[in-house]
Design a protein around this nucleic acid. Structure first.
Length: 580
DNA sequence: CGCATTTGACCAGCGC
DNA sequence: GCGCTGGTCAAATGCG
């Protein structure tokens, strides 16, 4: 009986199809993850290709042959058109398949119909199948076309982005440049964002902002004198204390007048817009070593946390407005939360540079809005794109596991979470790198587009150290030091590259970059406890080895404040945050 | 003795 | 207006 024979065939076909469909679904999923966009393709794709074959089978049993046929014909069509991906195993093409099912017609044939009726039914099916096939082809064409457009857009975006990077590197001293870049860059991604709603682009843009802003931050010191470098990527950070803070005595620090650079001015002029950058890292040490010297000036019990919060002030320069708060996480005391506020008004040792750049870039990302809107006032504060109104941590897609923004705090705060080691073997996390469930949702679907933005975002940690001009401008040091420094930079680069290669995750790469500097480069332990009994520069004498050598930007700072290599004192510092 | 840390007090902002 | 909280100051204390 026909009714029984087709069944097995039907099933068999579906088995065969399943592989094809699996391929195709993967493709479709890949596409889906790529664009997230309201592409009509998706709706259609979901309808046409998204059907599970058992559903189709069920539908077929109900006499809804179309969707079953879709796959049959689809496969046939694809074989012809694609010549690859979804090879069809039934040489006969669609009609074999159509028979299949369409023995659904079996419902009709079951009743001992005549051969004529069968023929009629076949013809009918044939016609329907033809129509479906035509439709299918049309959809496939459209699919291909849209996919091509998507790829083209992706390519274009990547190209533009790389051009941006090149321009940024080649013209680091044009203060307005980053501004322009930001405007340029903003327009493109926003276009993507608005028209396609692609998180990829959103995140890319955000990272771009960080990158561009950081480049601003990093290049300015090079171009300017140390005393003038307070205004950076995070202007409100840098000068807040002196300008708009209204916070008492700190205002006397106003050693660094706001730059005329519009970007800085714009955010610096916004009272109350005082960004903070919070870094979460696992550490048994009382304080993460960031290469700077800090003096504790207060400690307080914060509400909701049994661990006290310690307040530190940068002592590398007399009037440095930078403050930082250190507190252990209430939920996980192995996590040390360090919050930076303000921007150094003095050159930094290399080890400190990395962290400073990181925080500056992060803060800049947070505050870059005014700069962008200054010229065009087009789109408002970019940060709003990823701000969440209720203390919620909104994610920055690619960096979703590491960057969190909070708007509930008195000040906009961006949190860099280095506590996660997303399974990239061999990646040295700064402090132990234990696992912790991601604070934020990851966006695995964004992975395909990761490389460029992530790499770029990471690059933001490096330019200042890499810039030959920076070295030239700040390095009266011996060639050996330069070499050493370059070596360090190189290793950082390698680490970062390796991190990206191993796991395109910003957190990982960031951790790798920072840890490479901290651990290898000079994890500093230059906390204020170090020079106890001596001057703040007491550390000057130690080091000078590799890391210290790196006076990278060697901002010949304060009396040769160099960085020691992973000093053991790191662990022996007095720990006010852990004690009590 | 000089410096950093500790710690209670003070001040400002914010919410009720 | 009051209380709470965060942030800072500054005298006291401790350490090398």
């Amino acid at each position: 009986m026909e009714t029984k024979k087709p069944e097995p065939r039907h099933r068999h076909d579906h088995v065969l199809h399943e592989e094809d469909e699996a391929h195709q679904e993967r493709e479709e999923n890949a596409t889906t993850t790529m664009d997230h966009g309201p592409l009509s393709l998706h709706h259609r794709g979901a309808t046409l290709f998204g059907h599970r074959h058992d559903e189709a089978a069920a539908a077929a049993r109900r006499g809804e042959i179309r969707e079953v046929d879709f796959f049959s014909l689809d496969s046939g069509a694809r074989q012809q058109q694609d010549g690859g991906g979804g090879g069809r195993r039934v040489p006969g093409g669609g009609w074999d398949d159509v028979n299949i099912g369409l023995d659904l017609l079996t419902t009709a044939t079951d009743a001992t119909t005549s051969a004529e009726e069968k023929a009629t039914a076949r013809n009918q099916v044939h016609m329907e199948a033809s129509a479906v096939e035509a439709e299918l082809r049309r959809v496939l064409d459209e699919n291909r076309r849209l996919r091509g457009m998507l790829e083209e857009l992706t390519r274009s975006y990547g190209t533009l982005y790389q051009q941006l990077l090149q321009v940024t590197q080649h013209h680091p001293h044009q203060h307005q440049h980053p501004d322009h870049l930001m405007n340029n860059r903003s327009s493109l991604p926003r276009t993507h964002l608005n028209t396609m709603g692609m998180p990829n682009n959103t995140s890319t843009r955000q990272l771009l902002e960080g990158r561009a802003a950081s480049s601003t931050a990093q290049t300015q010191p090079d171009a300017d004198e140390a005393s003038d470098e307070a205004g950076e990527a995070s202007p409100s950070l840098s000068n807040n204390a002196g300008n708009n803070d209204g916070k008492r005595k700190i205002s006397q620090d106003g050693t660094a007048p706001p730059r005329e650079n519009g970007e800085q001015a714009s955010s610096a002029e916004l009272p109350g817009r005082k960004a903070r950058v919070s870094v979460r890292a696992r550490s048994e040490a009382p304080m993460i070593s960031d290469g700077c010297q800090w003096r504790k000036y207060g400690q307080k019990m914060a509400k909701g946390n049994p661990c006290p919060r310690a307040y530190y002030r940068c002592t590398m320069a007399v009037a440095c407005p930078v403050r930082k708060q250190v507190q252990r996480c209430a939920e996980d005391k192995t996590i040390l939360v360090t919050t930076y506020e303000g921007h150094h008004n003095h050159p930094l040792p290399p080890a400190a540079t990395t962290m400073a750049n990181t925080t500056s870039a992060a803060a800049a990302m947070l505050l870059s809005g005014p700069a962008t809107s200054r010229d065009g006032a087009l789109l408002g504060h970019p940060a709003a794109l990823f701000h969440h109104p209720h203390h919620a941590a909104t994610t920055i897609p690619y960096a979703s596991t590491m960057a969190t923004l909070s708007a509930s705090a008195p000040f906009p705060t961006i949190t860099l979470d280095l506590t996660q080691s997303p399974g990239a073997p061999g990646l040295p996390l700064a402090h132990g790198g234990l696992q912790r469930p991601p604070v934020l949702g990851i966006h695995p679907t964004a992975a395909p587009a990761i490389p460029i933005p992530v790499a770029s975002a990471l690059a933001m940690f490096l330019p200042q150290q890499r810039g030959p001009m920076a070295a030239a401008a700040n390095m009266p040091a011996a060639p050996g030091l330069v070499a050493s420094r370059q070596q360090q930079q190189h290793s950082v680069m390698e680490t970062v590259t390796a991190a990206i290669t191993a796991d395109p995750n910003f957190t990982t790469a960031l951790a790798a970059a920072i840890s490479s500097v901290m651990a290898g480069g000079g994890g500093g332990a230059h906390q204020s406890t170090t020079p106890r009994g001596g001057s703040n520069n007491g550390i000057a004498g130690e080091v000078n080895g590799s890391a210290g050598a790196a006076p990278a930007l060697a901002q010949t700072t304060a009396g040769g404040t160099n960085v020691a290599n992973g000093s053991p004192r790191f662990a022996t510092q007095s720990c006010t945050t852990s004690t009590n």
